[in-house]
């Protein structure tokens, strides 16, 4: 059932690169806007900005959560879910960090040319996310853990931190992400 339900959205990845600077630029130029001919539905937006999660801490202050200058408590966000009734909980814990981007574009456009001739055959509208050239990650971190309870303040709480992830630096994301529906709605 899951397969049937999810086949209705496909991502045509005409140009997506997640790599170090310069590595994939030549490949993307071959597919960029200049080659696509007529583009309808101009307008759209060019977005720049940043998103931060729990920069100084979250709204909860208890025996488990606190502000980030309190080293005895965790100040990040916590995401817990379970896939089995009455089972344990998988946890993304102590999620925090900041990332900034410049030049994320969003628009609806018609593709009726390009793509090595496939565009003429495609002839449909897509939601285009123009990826920002650079995304700057600033001290993004979280932990993967397994927990006995959903809340860390529940009675009998036990948690095993499996591993931690930390990200810092710049990531180049070039090209466009095109989203469009197919299949039976």
């Amino acid at each position: 059932m899951m397969t049937v339900a999810t086949t209705n959205v496909l991502l045509l990845l005409c140009a997506l690169a997640l790599s170090i600077p310069g590595q994939s630029a030549a490949e993307l130029k071959r597919l960029d806007d200049q080659a696509l001919g007529a583009v309808a539905g101009q307008g759209g937006i060019y977005l720049s900005g940043d998103v931060s999660i729990n920069e100084l801490g979250g709204p909860v202050e208890n025996s488990y959560f606190g502000r980030c200058d309190d080293e005895t408590r965790k100040c990040g966000a916590r995401f817990a879910y379970r896939l089995k009734e009455n089972g344990g909980w998988m946890v993304l814990d102590d999620i925090r960090g900041n990332f900034a981007f410049e030049g994320l574009t969003l628009r609806v456009r018609t593709i009726d040319s390009g793509f090595g001739g496939d565009g003429v055959l495609f002839r449909a509208d897509v939601l285009e996310l123009g990826l920002p050239n650079t995304v700057r990650f600033n001290d993004v971190r979280f932990k993967i853990a397994a927990s006995s309870t959903a809340r860390p303040t529940d009675p009998g709480f036990q948690q095993t931190d499996i591993f931690s992830v930390g990200m810092r630096g710049e990531v180049v994301m070039e090209g466009n992400l095109l989203v469009f529906p197919v299949g039976k709605p």
Binding site: V51, S52, I53, N54, E55, L56, G57, G58, P59, V60, F65, C75, G76, A77, R78, F79, A80, Y81, W89, A150, R151, P152
Partner: peptide
């Protein structure tokens, strides 16, 4: 269950 989120 999501807890303690502050997103800017």
């Amino acid at each position: 269950k999501m807890q303690n989120f502050d997103i800017k």
